[in-house]
Simulated scan of single mutants.
Amino acid sequence: MPYIDNSDLPASVLASLPDHAQDIYRQAFNHAFDAHKDDPRQEEVSHRIAWAAVKRSYVKIGGHWVAR
């Protein structure tokens, strides 16, 4: 299901990503969710795409995500 607000994101995303990265994740997930509506793995694919979008702008150093 699409996420209306960042507070609706999974707890693991909220706990690990900074605010801007959460925005990227939410927007990428929602776009992918809509684009893959006929795929039986729609939610799984959307989460993978969202993480890939975050990784283009952020890198995990130690236990923290920081902007590239």
Rank of each mutant, 00 (worst) to 15 (best):
Y58L: 08
V66G: 09
D34M: 07
I61M: 12
P2R: 15
P40S: 10
P18C: 04
H64D: 12
L14T: 02
A52I: 04
S16M: 00
D34A: 15
Q42N: 15
R56V: 07
M1H: 11
A35V: 01
P40T: 13
S12K: 13
A28Y: 06
Y3T: 06
F29Q: 01
I4V: 15
E43Y: 06
K37Q: 15
F29E: 00
S46F: 09
D38A: 09
G63R: 13
I49Q: 11
I4F: 14
H64S: 15
K55Q: 06
I49P: 08
P2V: 14
R56S: 12
K55R: 06
K37D: 11
A15H: 12
A50L: 03
D19Y: 14
W51Y: 01
N6G: 12
L17Y: 03
K55I: 00
S57G: 02
P18T: 12
S12L: 05
I24Y: 08
S7M: 10
V59K: 05
D34H: 13
D5S: 04
K55W: 01
E43K: 09
R26S: 08
H20G: 07
R41G: 10
N30P: 01
P18H: 00
A21F: 09
D8G: 02
V13M: 08
Y25C: 02
K60G: 09
A15V: 13
A35K: 13
D5F: 11
N6L: 14
I24N: 09
I24H: 12
V59N: 02
A21G: 03
Y25N: 01
H47S: 10
A15L: 11
S57I: 07
V66F: 10
L14W: 00
A11D: 09
V59D: 04
N30E: 03
E44H: 12
F29T: 01
Y25T: 01
N30G: 05
P10I: 14
L14A: 02
W65Y: 07
R48W: 03
Q27F: 01
P40M: 09
H47M: 09
F29I: 02
H47G: 02
H20W: 12
N6F: 14
N30R: 07
A67N: 13
Q22P: 05
A28D: 01
L17P: 08
P40A: 12
S46R: 10
R41W: 12
W51C: 00
P10V: 09
R56A: 14
H31F: 04
R26F: 14
S46E: 04
S57P: 00
D39Y: 10
P10S: 10
D8Y: 15
S12D: 10
A21P: 07
S16C: 02
H36W: 15
H31V: 03
V66N: 06
A67G: 09
V13L: 05
D19E: 14
W51E: 08
S16E: 03
A21V: 15
